[in-house]
Design a protein around this nucleic acid. Sequence first.
DNA 1: CCGGAGATTG
Length: 692
Amino acid sequence: MGTVAALTEETESSYSKSASSLPSLVPAHRKPASSCSLALGPRRRHRDPVALLLQCAAQLTMKQLLQLQAALLTNPPPASAVDPNVLAVKLIGASADRGNVRHAALVFSRLPSPNVFAWNAVLKVHAQHNLWVHTLRYFEQLLLESGAAGGAAPDEYTFTSVLKACAGLVAADGGEKAHSLVLKLGFQSNLFIQNSLVDMYFKFGRPWIARRLFEEMSVRDVVSWNTLVTGYCLCGDVHGARQVFDRMGEKSLISWSAMIAGYARLGDVRAARELFDAMPERNVASWNVMISAYAQNEKFMESIQLFRQMQQVGGLLPNDVTLVSVLSACAHLGALDLGRWIDMFIKRKKMELNLFLGNALADMYAKCGCIAEARAVFDEMAERDVVSWTVLISGLAMHGHADEALDGFYNMLEHGIKPNDVTFMGILSACTHSGLVDPGMKYFRMMTEEFKIVPKVEHYGCVVDLLSRAGRLDEAEDFINSMRVAPNVIVWGGLLGGCQIYKDIIRGERVVQRILELDPEHSGSYVYLANLYALTGRLEDSAHCRLRMRHNKVVKTPGCSWIEVDNMVHEFFMGDRTHPQSDKIYSMIRWLSYRMKLAGYNPNVSLVTHCVDEEEKEDALSTHSEKLAVAFGLISTGEGTTIRVVKNLRVCNDCHDAMKLISQIVEREIILRDRSRFHHFKDGLCSCKDYW
DNA sequence: CCGGAGATTG
């Protein structure tokens, strides 16, 4: 008795804490105050826990649920009064709604004889959390028990979860078995099951079967049609999806969202936006679709702009999904102020740091140069998955903290999290940035041999980079020739970079030839050849080479840099004059050039391009995007303020040298993140120690 | 006492 009283006391304080946030969530007349209060007055303190659970499960926190459960265990109601299965179904569903699947499973496991409702509850919980293997395991168990006397037997509700799990796993054999069981049990005319089957066959990549099942349905609802639209998008047939979309009668918000997402996945952001603008009404998810459509297609500025519009024009509050997309955009742009604002928003709204949100937040901090904050978020998270650890490891790698990145890796292994291909990219790049050649090779072998991860081109590229930057060009070339996959331009490009650094002209020419075989329009090779000829005095050949590049209309990723000032992200392209303050920016650059020349800096001395297939140097040297961004930062922030710039490509040697000098001249810290890492310029030096 | 379709991270 004493225990129960103590629990209720505790409950009181935790409930009153959250009570202050209730008015915004629940309309006043629906406030659960009188019927659900655990302890609003002394007389209600010992309210029946059974009634409480049955009526108010949705309003309780996880802690309160656990307290209720403890009360029930300490002081169980008579079995004749209430079926334990009924309570279990409530507890299972409520725990899962609060993200606690483990506890839901625990409750289920303690049930002496689960009925079909309990089985369905536990199946649904696991299917909804994408724990498909578990779902199917429970289902197999259920099938075993249904054979025994008194065991529960699957019903029509069972199959929605099971089919979803088969679809998620792309387990075609299991899916077909489940399908025949549906037929055997006579459930095939259930609309929910039919819709699930259509969805499943689309996910199996068999749209024709899905379509046939759809055609055979005697009754279809809007979900059936939406499933068809989604399914065709999934199979890459966005035109087929559009035909269905145009043909269907009543459309729901989901129909529009599905179609927009379909266009976005194919990279047609314009078509996506047209549909978004044409929607008759929108909810948060509709905005989320479009915000993520921009983010997925690297239109981060547009993504953020739409995020603002959603609040100002749409009058909607972002939810966790919104924030995850926007945080990703912030991470790419280095938009730290907005990122911090979102962090505050999360805290203000007391939002739970779930895996997605925590990972996105930690990544934002890491990519905005705040590795300590990234780590703090990581530490704060209740659970961590392979993405969380990869964010941390890659973040440390980007900052040049190779040792800590490797520590993180072993820590991750100790926590029983299996690394994947992205994790190893973080590890390998950590080694590359610190010149840890032999360890890098060790981790590459570990990846393939111990973890059986098939290396992607990026991994090969990283290893070649690792060897080449350290000057081990023979090994790098041997490594390329020993690759099981045909090397591509990126891989050869890594070796070419090494040839440039170590001025290995003969090997360089050989490599350039291999590259031009693969890609006759490869601009980096032309730049390299031109520089090579210039170096060896063959100026005519050099000029000819550049001309050839122009004739071929070589298209390169344009160099682009971003800087955030007063909550606004400003974007600069190479030689950009479109910024409203362009005049001031360019006079700042002229002033900087003058000061740098005084300090002995001569951009024309360096003919060696560091970056291979990236930005062309030429006359645009002084107007590379990162210089524009830094110049803008200098004129628009106060003395001594740190300048933070993000660039989409690798910084070239000349800009790197220039940044070092600029940091000295203006006495500012400049933090530049390029495609592969952070450069922290201070007092004329860079944190990368000129090795990157 | 229960189910299906859309939006999220490295």
